[in-house]
Design a binder for these strands. Structure first.
Length: 204
DNA sequence: AGAGTGATCATG
DNA sequence: ATGATCACTCTC
């Protein structure tokens, strides 16, 4: 029987959590279907001091409230008038930090994911199905309804343990984060992580 | 390189 | 009330 990541997995610093999420299994139960994928790309958002974070400077609004909740909470936000992105909170209590899930390698329910993604245009190739933060939420049917979900206890969305240790450092590529050009001195911080040589990554 | 798209929030 | 912004994706 697959085992979930426990609360203590998330109660660590957000960089450690972002790296440790690589290789774990994202699970979504929706309309009786089980959709799963292996997390292959993440970013860490460091909260109050981080100029790229939604909680920079201690901002606390209805939108980002989930980032302030206990580690292991799902934070889903809506942006650009059409896209959802999903994050996992981490750290110690009251610390508004989170890891953005940027890409997964689809495993179960691929046909359903294609349907969820192909309302407009047909999917070109399977590596494009979940290779971006808004692509994977669309494929997995994740929107603001899922915001605030408790990943340790919630049935409809959670993360299963595939490995107890993080991937070896040699298999994790570290780069600056994507799409945060406004973040001044935080632009170049190495806070994006992805699995080396995995084809399901958000950018070439 | 530029369009699409509308919730969100800081201003006033 | 108003307007600027946006942790993106797709097409040209």
């Amino acid at each position: 029987m697959p085992e979930r990541l426990p609360r203590r997995f998330y109660e660590r610093d957000v960089v450690t959590v972002a790296r440790a999420l690589l290789g774990q299994r994202l699970v979504r139960m929706i309309n009786g279907k089980r959709l799963t994928g292996i997390i292959v790309e993440t970013e860490a958002y460091l909260g109050i001091p981080d100029k790229a974070a939604h909680t920079y400077g201690g901002r606390r609004t209805p939108r980002n409230e989930s980032m302030w909740q206990q580690a292991g909470t799902l934070y889903v936000y809506f942006t650009y008038g059409m896209h959802h992105c999903c994050n996992v909170t981490a750290g110690s209590p009251g610390q508004p930090v989170a890891a953005l899930i940027r890409a997964v390698e689809p495993v179960e329910g691929i046909d359903t994911m294609k349907k969820n993604r192909s309302s407009k245009r047909k999917i070109s190739c399977h590596t494009a199905l979940c290779s971006g933060p808004a692509k994977l939420t669309q494929a997995f049917g994740i929107d603001r309804h899922a915001d605030g979900s408790n990943l340790v206890t919630d049935k409809s969305i959670h993360i299963e343990k595939v490995r107890s240790r993080s991937l070896p450092s040699k298999q994790i590529i570290t780069t600056p984060r994507i799409g945060i050009q406004y973040a001044e001195d935080w632009v170049d911080r190495p806070l994006r992580f992805y699995v080396k040589d995995n084809p399901h990554i958000s950018k070439k």
